[in-house]
């Protein structure tokens, strides 16, 4: 299983489109930095195709004042959770 890491928001970048196209059926996606904007409101709809396999980094939502605003379909992980995800993945692929 690959862990894809994305730091671009679907509101301002097309990179998320290619990330989703590259993801395998059991790959996971972690939204970090500006990628966490994709966890809030209607932007989260971009990720419905991978529901249950998409995460957002809590610390980055907190720093952006969006901590409790993430969509229910996207699971929050903190830094330790981030590390745990990388340990479970055979490899991480970063989309910057």
């Amino acid at each position: 299983m690959l862990l894809h890491i994305l730091n671009r928001s679907p509101a301002s970048s097309r990179v998320p489109l290619d990330t989703l196209r590259a993801m395998g059926d059991n790959d996971w996606l972690l939204l970090i930095e500006d990628g966490v904007y994709g966890a809030v409101g209607p932007l989260a709809d971009e990720f419905t195709s991978i529901q249950g396999r998409v995460f957002a980094l809590k610390e980055d939502l907190v720093s952006r004042g969006l901590e409790n605003r993430h969509d229910a379909t996207i699971e929050l992980v903190d830094m330790d959770g981030f590390v745990a995800l990388t340990e479970q993945a055979t490899q991480t692929v970063s989309w910057y």
């Binding site: 690959l2 196209r21 590259a22 395998g24 790959d27 055979t90 490899q91 692929v93 970063s94 989309w95």
Partner: peptide, 17 residues
């Protein structure tokens, strides 16, 4: 094509993006 793209990522053990 779209179907092949994930397979290419899945089968390489070292990926530089």
């Amino acid at each position: 094509d779209d179907a092949t793209l994930p397979e290419i990522f899945a089968r390489h053990s070292s990926i530089y993006n």
